[in-house]
């Protein structure tokens, strides 16, 4: 099928992009990689009047190091993520999760920022960003603001992004194996291409046989990505063992409100969250 007609703008800078969005009226869609937006437009579930295409905004693409943070441009593609040496060293959790996103062709076009701004709770990357306490740099007519991941995701397909604003960068804390961090993205779906029924993004820091810190993000366990806070808390200071991990993982579904849909009912998702959290933690902790 063919999208409904739309006007098209292809800015080359963030400034131009913001201007194009501002000039575009009420019905503007921002095209990042287009791998979710174009199918939705083809099915005519979306029919914007103006599409602002960010693919030529070079400043939004790439990864750089700033102190103890990595700064990832919103238009960095999934394929870029998989081949980036900094991310390989300091953001293995993101790399692992990105490997599971869709397929190689889609990963060539789809972008990190696009996936986050789309805020599909079944998407793999929001939970990773949340688990890592990423910071989201948003540009708008009034300048830039930075929002922590915990505040970025508001509801199903909804973020704090206001009309006229753009997600421009994502700042990730460095999580390195050398500092005792182990990570695992544990994804559960029915076929390779399908969205996650549930997935768990886990990062665990170990020191002298004990867990000092755990960060766990849950994919598709509510209208937004969630943290498994009770499990995280239960892990701090415990010995690294299958027993401690299993006990903590039993609390992974606390506070979640997953949906009932064709792929799974809520109670099954909550069960999966526990099993997958246990497996993710065990792998992350090197068990």
């Amino acid at each position: 099928m063919i999208p409904a007609a739309f006007a098209y703008s292809r800015p080359t800078t963030v400034e131009e992009a913001l201007q194009a969005i501002a000039d575009g009226g009420d019905d503007v869609k921002v095209l990042a990689g287009g791998q979710s937006l174009i199918p939705v437009m083809r099915l005519r579930l979306a029919a914007p009047e103006l599409v602002v295409d960010l693919t030529r905004v070079e400043e939004l693409r790439g990864v750089r190091e700033e102190g103890d943070q990595l700064v990832v441009g919103a238009m960095t593609t999934h394929a870029d993520v998989l081949s980036d040496p900094l991310l390989a060293q300091y953001a293995q959790l993101l790399v692992q999760a990105t490997e599971t996103v869709a397929d190689r062709q889609v990963r060539r076009r789809g972008t990190f920022g696009g996936a986050l701004a789309h805020a599909d709770p079944a998407g793999d990357l929001p939970a990773v960003a949340l688990a890592l306490d990423a910071e989201f740099v948003i540009a708008g007519p009034a300048g830039r603001r930075t929002v922590p991941a915990g505040e970025f995701f508001v509801d199903y397909l909804t973020t704090v992004l206001e009309e006229g604003e753009l997600l421009v960068e994502i700042r990730l804390p460095k999580i390195a194996a050398a500092d005792g961090w182990g990570v695992r993205y544990e994804k559960f779906n029915r076929v390779a291409q399908a969205w996650s029924i549930v997935a768990v993004a886990a990062a665990v820091r170990r020191e002298g046989g004990r867990i000092t810190e755990a960060r766990i993000g849950l994919t598709n366990m509510g209208p937004t990505p969630l943290r498994a806070s009770a499990t995280e808390a239960a892990l701090v200071g415990v010995d690294v063992s299958l027993e401690t991990v299993t006990a903590a993982a039993a609390q992974a579904a606390e506070g979640t409100s997953p949906s009932n849909d064709l792929n799974a009912q809520a109670d099954y998702r909550q069960h999966l969250a526990q099993v997958l959290t246990k497996r993710a933690l065990a792998a992350a902790a090197g068990l």
């Binding site: 076929v191 291409q193 064709l262």
Partner: peptide, 24 residues
């Protein structure tokens, strides 16, 4: 092929009607 209570086909795209890939 799954219909909902109103008779809509809910597996109306390859996102929901799961034709397996080589990996499956």
């Amino acid at each position: 092929a799954i219909y909902d209570a109103e008779g809509n086909l809910t597996t109306g795209t390859f996102v929901d009607y799961l034709v397996p890939s080589a990996a499956d």
